[in-house]
Nucleic acid binder design. Structure first.
Lengths: 202, 202
DNA sequence: CAGATACAATGACGTTTGTCATGGGCGGAA
DNA sequence: TTCCGCCCATGACAAACGTCATTGTATCTG
């Protein structure tokens, strides 16, 4: 009997996935959480064998949660189950020690198989996503450039960003210019969008 | 036995919700689709009593699908089940003849009850969302302003937008300026974000 | 050590953007 | 019919933006 932990911020989706997986005779859902910072505790308390983690969660994002979990409980496998097939997420998930990466577009029947494979220590990755990940490569952005893009996400002015990051206006514009160049964008907003779609932010 | 149609572009979520709802003795899922433009045909073919529609779907968005469905099959009730609790979505959903509006944050157990209520002709609405909807009111944007904001979504320049919409550069900037004023934003990007969050676009 | 890279900052530049006044054409409402 | 709002357009202006050259510090690497 494989013991599962579900972590997803959408209660409805979480409950539905629990119902789906509990139908499998060899699987049982032993814990559900809606926040990333509750993952490790819950996994330990319920002796989970496999944790299914969403990427976007309050408290702590799924990738960070995966890092914590694989370090704290190495025997507990991690399967990322996420909405967005961002190439950068896959890369980071694997680096975080995840055993698999599945997007929510995949047929429901394959989920149980993915869980079993991960439990056996195998790697489960969407082939299309793997190809895209290789194509886009790793993030070319420096840490600071990523910070600036993140701060520019909600459409504020340079002054807003510089205030938030305690930087000079000119420095912010330099970082932005650099990020625009690296992403191949022609506008700050476009750079934000592209970097986000590639999974280079957060 | 209430016959259900599920429409959601994420196959995994769709299947999981099917599993969840099929556990209820008085509910049965008779059809699943992943595109908005397949909703009406599927509902007719399988004689669905209640259709659960996500807002964002390829082909046709859930709100438009709800309009088509309530017109083509008036006896078939509609329950919107969506990720984002945008106030504007709720308003449009109700105008489209939906019987209920549920966000995916709600506990899984409440879903079956919502389905039953909608099937009985009752209205099901998240109270918090209803309040927010009243607070923000209807969209103050004109059709053209909304068009321009939509075109500005991916971060292009004024020239890009004017080319896409076959307008003068100056006209685009006028519409943008107007939209910025109406949304209370200070930047084009911020206006796009705010309008989107209010459900005033798409 | 020298070289490369990330970070922060400044000043200068040309361009883009947001705003405003103004005007004309078009539809619906008083 | 007259008014009003929406749409399209133009021109002008200040502010914000994107780019570049340059300087300096810190850190890591060969």
């Amino acid at each position: 009997m494989i013991r599962l932990l579900l972590a997803d911020d959408q209660a409805l989706v979480r409950g539905a996935m629990a119902a789906l997986l509990d139908l499998e005779p060899d699987l049982t859902v032993v814990a559900e959480v809606g926040r990333g910072d509750e993952v490790v505790d819950a996994a330990r308390a319920h002796a989970a064998d496999v944790a299914l983690l969403d990427v976007q969660m309050p408290g702590l994002d799924g990738l960070a949660a995966a890092r914590q979990l694989t370090e704290a409980l190495p025997h507990c496998r991690v399967l990322m189950v996420t909405t967005f097939g961002r190439a950068g997420y896959l890369r980071q998930a694997m680096a975080a020690g995840a055993g698999g990466f599945v997007v929510k577009d995949t047929p429901a029947r394959q989920l149980a198989d993915a869980v079993r494979r991960v439990h056996q220590g195998l790697r489960v990755v969407d082939p299309a996503l793997a190809a895209q990940s290789l194509a886009h490569g790793d993030s070319p952005l420096t840490e600071r450039e990523a910070d600036v893009l993140r701060a520019a996400r909600d459409g504020g002015t340079v002054a807003d960003i510089s205030r938030e990051l305690h930087l000079s206006d000119g420095t912010v514009r330099n970082h932005l210019s650099s990020a625009i160049g690296k992403t191949g964008a022609r506008t700050r907003a476009e750079a934000v969008r592209l970097a986000f779609d590639h999974g280079w932010l957060l």
